[in-house]
Amino acid sequence: MDAIILQLLNGLDKGSAYALIALGLTLIFGTLGVVNFAHGAIFMIGAFCAVTLSKLFNLSHKSSEPSGTDFLGNPKYEDILYVKDWFGESFGAWMIDWSVPLAVIFAIPIMVGLGFLMERGLIKHFYKRPHADQILVTFGLAIVLQEIIKYFYGANPIPTTAPEAFRGSFDFGVLLGFDQNAIIYPYWRLVYFGFSALIIGAVFAFLQFTTFGMVVRAGMADRETVGLLGININRRFTIMFGIAAAVAGLAGVMYAPINSPNYHMGMDFLVLSFVVVVVGGMGSLPGAVLAGFLLGILESFASMNEVKNVLPGIDQIIIYLVAIIILLTRPRGLMGRRGVMEE
């Protein structure tokens, strides 16, 4: 029982990353009808926003006065961090500690800007081209983006730490009445799950309860009619592209402490996220979220030893297997709308 709960929890954080990326992909597909293979790269750039901010905070200069002498008798200078200089000792230390959550604020404008740039600069010209062309050009863009990151940050993963307060693990089992240390779950993953739930909720609320969201939903259902009513739907869709980029980027920022960012992490997630989107149903937002969590949890259940003993290797292929079965039995995915990309 405790093992099952543990796997359920383990599935949640992976599932939240899948769900967030798939949500962004679906937003782009549902609004603009573009299959965006560069979405994984956006996720990766988000993670590198966190890396950049923590590097920026750790910039230092040599102190002007020697603080003492080293063992050879040369004057020794201390490294003084700029943030501590500017914001004071304790607040500076707090900023360094909290660089990942702070990177969320830092990342939003960057990701939205990047999204606008991509949509206006490149993807705009591909609305009328076939899906294969869209896949290919965004695939090229993904290669370019990840090579740029590799050029500046190198090919090795860069460890990024969560704030001190969230670094430990949480003994979940005690809460539910199990033995101590039966279910240990890192705090940060809990934070990640909460964060993604918050973002998913915010996106849905934005689409459901604001006038802007209402127009966007109308545009998703019938773009032409909304355009005929005199609404500049393209401008709104561009904004939605920015929002989708921000969602994927924030997923990346918060994922940095879970898995050290490297330049090809986006590609690794992209393949899975596409599977998630297709399983959920192209263009269906709730479907993307549902399929994301479902596949994340299934994956972690499949990696239990009990399951692996019965079906060796199942943990490696479960997601693809589920995807194949669902695609063949439910042509529109779990929650796809009728008539959207059925063939």
Binding site: V35, V271, V275, Q316, I317, Y320, A323, M341, E343
Partner: peptide, 14 residues
């Protein structure tokens, strides 16, 4: 269409 791409991708990754 894209479903075919995803299916072949899934088989290859498997």
């Amino acid at each position: 269409g894209i479903y075919f791409s995803i299916l072949t991708l899934a088989f290859a990754q498997m």
